[in-house]
Amino acid sequence: MDRVSLSEEEKDRFAKALLQHLDALYGFAWWLTHRREEIEDLVQETCLRALRSAHQFEPGTNLKAWLFSILKHEWFRRAGLAQREVLADSFSDNPEVPGQEWAVEVDVIRTALQKDLDEALRALPEEYRSAVLLFDLYGFSLKETAEILAIPDGTVKSRLARGRQMLRGRLWAYSKVSDNDQM
């Protein structure tokens, strides 16, 4: 749809399509910031920017991914964050899961409480959290995740691996605290 502008009817249709992704955008913005005014401002700006740039959207591609990339870009802009590469070993304070207890670990993950999962995700550095949320929660492909985060595919893979590793460590730690509380 790379045209100078859209007709009113096309824009109207596009606006309706945007609204179908409002909950997902709102949810993703919630993960970026918990402040309600900031969430609403971020989502509103995302939608308005998308509508203004509707002629640049390619029909047949993933509209939701396109919207998420606008939202992520807007968030970076507001937060004054530079899109940067994060070294996989720059966070070494996360507990590791002992290798021989993998069967127990699967059990821990399967029985993890929602609040523990939320807390573990919230505790992740933003770069890892975004990668995990986009790929594992929102179901974007590697390519789409890379486009949204404006990073190479390989970086997405390493962020996913490192982010999950940290999540597993936290869930494992929570389960041990819970075991101690019960004793």
């Binding site: 909950d23 709102y26 949810g27 993703f28 919630w30 993960w31 993998w102 670990e105 699967v106 993950i109 399967r110 993890a112 409480l113 929602q114 999962l117 939320d118 995700l121 995990v132 949320l133 594992d136 929660l137 179901g139 999950r164 999540l167 597993r168």
Partner: peptide, 17 residues
Amino acid sequence: VTEALRAAIRNRVSAPA
């Protein structure tokens, strides 16, 4: 393990609408 983690995230993690 990663599949279990992904399933937990998909099924139990949510954000407000």
